[in-house]
């Protein structure tokens, strides 16, 4: 799905988290929002997911105004920073949550739910993990389960908030490849937030560098490396 961000601004009280920013995300792209903490990248992601409403501006999904769409109607697969897995549910129930939450007429029958959950657990390469609880999983496994749970609702886009932030260096490298694989397999427009420039440069088709609530530069990783547009970008990517 093609996403267009049109002059989105967001302020909390008197502090502006986002100055009006505009950005076009092509359908099927894997995009990184890169910046230090406080740059507004997470706020922008949450605006896309419908978890925050912008103070002004519009969000367009495939050309249709989606600014006022509720979080439930956005159908955005969202992976949270600490994954926010439901602790009292098994992995199976976590992944099935979105399907069970559907209104009765669109809810798939139980056998279909089981089939889909198993397929997703295969996709994240953790088959047979369904009966375990989140606290019995490693950090990397939890991240993948969170991804499967987000994919279960057949989302129109995938939004990930620091998906590798809570993992150690080795697992982090492994899971980067995993995310790329899932993105290519599903073809979903994917936006992830990170403060790690290596991660952004290695993984994303398009990198959006942000600072102080503004977009500093948008470009392919190689272009940003070769031709940083502002002093901030130059400083940030060489840091």
């Amino acid at each position: 799905m093609h996403i267009e961000i049109d002059e989105i601004a967001k302020s909390f009280g008197t502090t502006a988290a986002l100055h009006p920013v505009s950005l076009a995300i092509p359908s099927g792209a894997l995009i990184a929002l890169l910046g230090p903490s406080g740059s507004g990248k997470t706020t922008l992601l949450r605006v896309l997911g419908g978890l925050e409403f912008p103070t002004s501006g519009r969000v367009l999904f495939d050309g249709d105004d989606a600014t006022g769409l509720t979080v439930q109607d956005r159908r955005a697969g969202f992976v949270f920073q600490n994954y926010a897995l439901f602790r009292h549910m098994t992995v199976f129930e976590n992944v099935a949550y979105g399907l069970r939450a559907r209104p009765r007429r669109t809810r798939p029958p139980e056998a279909e739910i089981v089939r889909r959950v198993e397929k997703l657990l295969d996709l994240i390469q953790l088959p047979g993990i369904g009966t375990r609880y989140p606290n019995q999983l490693s950090g990397g496994q939890r991240q993948r389960v969170a991804l499967a749970r987000a994919l279960a609702i057949e989302p129109r886009m995938l939004l990930l908030d620091e998906p590798f932030g809570a993992l150690d260096a080795k697992v982090r490298k492994e899971l980067r490849g995993n995310l790329r694989h899932i993105h290519d397999a599903t073809g979903l427009t994917t936006v992830f937030v990170t403060h790690d420039q290596d991660e952004a440069m290695e993984l994303a088709d398009l990198v959006v560098v942000m600072s102080m609530g503004r977009i500093e530069q948008v470009g392919k990783p190689a272009d940003i490396r070769a031709r940083p547009k502002t002093d901030f970008v130059r400083g940030f990517i060489t840091a």
């Binding site: 978890l51 955005a76 949270f80 600490n82 439901f86 979105g98 939450a101």
Partner: peptide, 25 residues
């Protein structure tokens, strides 16, 4: 708030979120 937000992004209504996520927690 993350657990509740997760439930909402998965399409759950406010009441369902309260019943299946907040209350068990």
């Amino acid at each position: 708030r993350a657990d509740e937000e997760a439930a909402l992004t998965l399409g759950a209504t406010g009441w369902r979120t309260f019943r299946t996520v907040t209350l068990p927690n």
